[in-house]
Amino acid sequence: MNERELAIKSNIYRQRILKYIVGANAGHTGGSLSCIDILNVLYNYVLNVDPKNFGSPDRDRYIQSKGHCVEALFVVLADKGFFPESDLNTLCKYKSHYIGHPTRKVHGVEQNTGALGHGLPISVGTALAAKLDKKKFKVYTLLGDGELPEGSNWEAALTAAHYKLDNLCAIIDKNSLQITGSTADVCNTEPIDEKFESFGWAVQHVNGHSIKELKQAFGMLPLVKGKPNLIIAHTVKGNGVSFMENQVKWHHGVPDKVQYADAIKELESALSILR
């Protein structure tokens, strides 16, 4: 898929994210919109995963540490054919497997996540298993910038470097906001790049909404042989819907009817330009 086609997909994914969040009357709107381009490039360009052979021991792994942005993941998995998109009409409904965080009850989900600071250690273990078995698959995990203060991330960062896991790629969806406000105000984690570098990681910055830069960065892996990879994706919370962008209230805000119509209108007009 070329960049324009991927950009079109991102736009459609954004519309679907909003649709199902409105349907569920719940969801993490801002973060799903900030990470959707990353998920788009992963699932449509990078990952070797197949809904018909998802159990393959050689598949690439994607583990979403920032589990709360599950709507982005579900929309992409549906598009990839892991389950019918209509299943998402049950999102957050009684007895639905499609709940507010990823679970393995949903085809295509690797791990049950939701509590923060868990994706990286599990990914380290999975990448280590690949090294032990001399398998070629890679492990990708998406972290929010707000979850970096969880100490388990830093424990895992040490282990990843210790075992030279260059088959591991962590991506930080650096939208610089979290539920309380700016990450810099809540708990300043900068400089993230220098911290990870000092832990023995190779780090690459990208514009997390540039399909081109994301493709390039993933195409360069491993950034340095023998080092785990960190891609810091600079993103905008609520990206694609101007009135949601960089607004902390859209962390888990659900659009009302008018807001939803406005958002779709804006996305549709962007889509018509892409087409």
Partner: peptide, 23 residues
């Protein structure tokens, strides 16, 4: 034998990842 160091949260998280890949 996989040594994690004194980091029990990581011990269990890494173990989960290893187990999910068939170990």
């Amino acid at each position: 034998i996989i040594e994690i160091g004194i980091a029990e949260q990581n011990l269990v998280g890494v173990s989960a990842g290893l187990a999910s890949a068939g170990k």
